[in-house]
Amino acid sequence: MTTIKAACLGVIGCAAVWSGCASTLPAERVAAPRAAIRAAEEMGAYNVPRASLHLKLAKDQVAQADALIRDDEQERAAWVLTRADADAELALLLAREQRVLEEAAAVRNQIHELQQRTTPKS
């Protein structure tokens, strides 16, 4: 089990933690989900129900990871941060989808208005 878990951690980018050589998580691993959370918030994730759900999961898990780090549970914290990152990235994408859809709808509206104006009334 140890080997597989270590390999998995390696793939998801926290081999150093599991190796036992390092006692703290690399800064970028801690920062990654936070950056994604900020990006999702800026994209308006709060206004998109599904995005908002994943945003909340991400934030809760970041808080949970902080607590784990304080308790020196580095390995568990690494896993929780990875989960948080996956949620934050998904929240960002869902918010982006909504934005693109709204932009497309706005252009469609403009087209419709233009058509209304140029079509002579019978």
């Binding site: 878990k5 568990r76 996956a86 990235e89 998904l90 869902l94 982006r96 989808e97």
Partner: peptide, 28 residues
């Protein structure tokens, strides 16, 4: 290999998000 371990659940949790990400990305 390891059955219902916490890290297996973590990997599954992440895999689900990645799958959803791929689906939403196609919609984007």
């Amino acid at each position: 290999e390891d059955g219902n371990e916490q890290y297996v659940r973590d990997l599954s949790y992440i895999a689900e998000r990645k799958a959803e990400f791929a689906r939403i990305q196609s919609k984007v």
